[in-house]
Design a protein around this nucleic acid. Structure first.
Lengths: 201, 201
DNA sequence: GTTTATACAAACACGGTTGTATGTAAATAG
DNA sequence: CTATTTACATACAACCGTGTTTGTATAAAC
């Protein structure tokens, strides 16, 4: 076996992560053996165990590889003139990423439907950190809109943000579980716009 | 071993289903062996294999045991005077059942977070049948409300129903993944009421 | 009252998966 | 240029978990 340079080794590592994502998506995390992943990556289990301590560590690496860039994408610009437009843009961006970026979509599919949250996976159920930050951003954006008098009277910014948070959670879930031609995928943008419009004064 | 009467055998079957639910919830479906379930039920694998062909069949039995009664619970009464109140009642009923009925809650937790949708489990991802019926019921209820002029002008009943559908999907998910003292659990009823109120004319 | 089917327990055979240990050629350090 | 570490491949040992088979006491059928 030819010993690889550091750069080649890093490429091998990424190939293993890519292969893991493909096999996880098809077989589910639990029913995926490291042998399957190695074969899909064109290496042996030796390579996998060299780069990762076990399947869990590989799973976490795969997850961070796609999820971390994702949360950075969805930003709420603090445009005080049009906070509602900012919310709309942020939400639309979520579904644009889902539609355009295969890696992110597949990873979300895996963490949503192809893995079991027990033992070491339990703490990342609901991705506590990221989700809470998202909800907080939403709340602040609605508060800015309320301060500008752009909202319908009635619900507080907190309640509006939570309602939107649930809406997004449900839509992402149904978006992911649907086929590409699913109505929830086709109509996601319109739904987002209607959702935000319902809050306008 | 003493041969059991039919009634005793049926009790054994239910004990196995109960044990399966407990172990599935703790270990995840994939990491649950039939030996674990048998031990938790106080029997051997022989009894499990007598009542069920394999783990999949046991899983489906457990699921139907709790999910079927659940969907029957959430009904939209066709009260044409107050269709929005009917929607609100139906939604509140969902979270009442989640809070009050352990078996249903645990089963939903399992199908949401403790199982992987691959192979034979793939078709029941999203429970296509039940979900679509729920969405249809919602749409009809909003259509009745629209006919009575009870809705804010703007979105169609279809869009409103889909928005509510996503809201419920997200809230159920976050409700389940939260601790008992989670704000999403405590505030679920208020969120439902605020959600419906946002649609009132 | 026999016979038969039932409701399991116990034993068996088998493959799959894991982690580790060992081998090794080439890259890198000195 | 030599020594050492790297980046794997290969081989090994151990353990589950599964499905099936066999055994058996008893309930139910006739």
């Amino acid at each position: 076996m030819v010993r690889k340079t550091k750069e080649e080794a890093e490429i091998t590592r990424l190939h293993i992560i890519d292969a893991a994502r493909r096999v996880f998506l098809q077989c589910g995390v639990s029913h995926t053996s490291l042998e399957k992943i190695a074969a899909a990556a064109g290496v042996t289990r030796g390579a996998v165990y060299w780069h990762f301590r076990n399947k869990s560590e590989l799973f976490f690496a795969m997850r961070e590889d796609a999820i971390l860039p994702f949360v950075d994408r969805v930003v709420f610009d603090a445009d005080d003139e049009e906070p509602l437009a900012g919310i709309e843009t942020a939400l639309l961006e979520i579904f644009r990423v889902l539609a355009d970026e295969q890696k992110t979509r597949e990873t979300l599919e895996i963490v949503s439907f192809k893995c079991e949250y027990v033992d070491e996976f339990l703490p990342l159920m609901g991705c506590s950190a990221g989700q809470q930050a998202f909800l907080d951003d939403l709340t602040r954006a609605y508060a800015r809109a309320a301060a500008r008098g752009l909202l319908r009277p009635g619900p507080t910014p907190e309640v509006l943000a939570t309602d939107t948070f649930m809406f997004v959670g449900g839509l992402v879930k149904h978006w992911l579980e649907g086929e590409p031609e699913s109505p929830f995928r086709q109509g996601a943008e319109d739904l987002v716009r209607a959702h935000v419009a319902l809050r306008r004064a």
